[in-house]
């Protein structure tokens, strides 16, 4: 997956745990974990909005595009 969610750094900066963030934005801890581990296939605008609101950041602070490493032999 080329799009990475930079939740680790933001949580560390805001001194928040995964559980606290899940409670604040109203989604399950399992879903926040999917986001954090970059397993998510899609993010709803409503979730993105809640994340930006609670973490006081812009969508660009949360998401990052990385070039995939070529898989050589």
């Amino acid at each position: 997956m080329s799009i990475h969610v930079k939740l680790d750094h933001l949580l560390l900066d805001r001194r928040l745990t995964l559980t606290e963030l899940a409670d604040r934005i109203g989604i399950t801890i399992a879903n926040v974990s999917i986001l954090k581990t970059n397993k998510a296939r899609a993010v709803r605008f409503s979730t993105l909005e809640a994340l930006c609101r609670e973490l006081d950041c812009q969508p660009g602070d949360l998401l990052e595009w990385r070039r995939d490493e070529p898989t050589g032999r």
Binding site: N31, I34, L35, A40, R41, A42, V43, R44, T47
Partner: peptide, 8 residues
């Protein structure tokens, strides 16, 4: 279904 379950 898999995509839905991985949509946050």
């Amino acid at each position: 279904d898999e995509e839905q379950s991985l949509t946050v």
